[in-house]
Simulated scan of single mutants.
Amino acid sequence: MYAIVDIAGQQFKVEKDQFVFVHRLQGAEGASIEFDNVLLVDNNGQITVGAPTVAGSSVSAKILSHLKGDKVIVFKKKRRKGYKKKNGHRQSFTKIQIENIKF
């Protein structure tokens, strides 16, 4: 059984007991969170597609930790003009574990 769910503006294919890294979510570590924007559910070959979401279905997860991703370097340059700009960014993520898919 799997589901396609909208979490923080992104769509993820999730299954039970799966670990997922999503954009930073509000909530303390160890807290449970529930997502109602389920777009598709596959229940052992029986596929239910929402319009736009599947009514009455939800995905529950547990927040494991908040962390930062790898550093991404942003480098801009205009040749022969003496212009160089170097900037770095680290995206904040939340690691969650899918506990249950209600259908």
Rank of each mutant, 00 (worst) to 15 (best):
I4H: 02
E99C: 05
K81I: 02
G69F: 07
I98H: 10
A61E: 11
F103V: 11
Q46E: 12
Q11W: 01
K102Y: 12
H66L: 02
N43M: 05
K78H: 07
F93T: 04
A3E: 08
K71G: 01
I33Q: 07
I7A: 13
L64I: 15
G45M: 07
F12H: 15
L40R: 06
G56A: 11
S60T: 15
F75N: 06
Y2F: 13
R79E: 12
Q97M: 15
Y2E: 05
A3V: 00
L39I: 13
G45N: 09
I63V: 15
V41L: 10
S57Q: 01
A55R: 07
Q26P: 04
E34N: 12
V5L: 08
G69W: 03
N37M: 05
V14D: 13
A28I: 06
V14Q: 11
E15N: 11
L40P: 08
S32V: 09
F75W: 09
L67C: 14
I63D: 10
G9M: 13
D17A: 14
L39N: 12
V72R: 13
A31H: 01
G82E: 03
R80C: 00
G56F: 06
V5T: 08
D36H: 14
E15R: 08
I98D: 10
L64K: 13
K62S: 13
V14F: 09
S58W: 04
I4G: 10
N37G: 01
I73F: 03
V5E: 08
A28K: 15
V5N: 05
D36E: 14
N43H: 10
L40A: 02
K102S: 13
I73Y: 14
D6H: 11
H89A: 00
K13F: 04
T94P: 02
F12K: 03
K85C: 01
V14G: 14
E34C: 11
E99W: 02
V20W: 04
F75A: 01
H89Y: 14
K78D: 02
D42R: 07
S65A: 14
F12R: 11
Q11G: 02
F93S: 03
N87K: 11
G88A: 13
E99V: 13
N37A: 14
Q26T: 09
D42E: 08
S57V: 04
V14S: 13
N43R: 15
Y83C: 00
A3M: 02
A8Y: 05
R80M: 06
Q46H: 12
V54E: 07
V74Y: 15
R90W: 11
K76C: 08
K85Q: 03
F103P: 02
A61W: 08
G45P: 08
N100R: 15
A61M: 06
V5M: 12
R80P: 00
T48G: 05
K13E: 07
K76S: 01
S60F: 10
A51S: 07
I96H: 03
K62L: 10
I7T: 00
K13S: 08
E29W: 03
G45D: 08
S57P: 00
I96S: 00
D42C: 10
L25C: 11
Y2P: 00
A28S: 12
I96R: 00
Q46G: 06
V54G: 10
K68T: 11
V74D: 13
Y2I: 01
K68M: 06
A51T: 12
I98R: 04
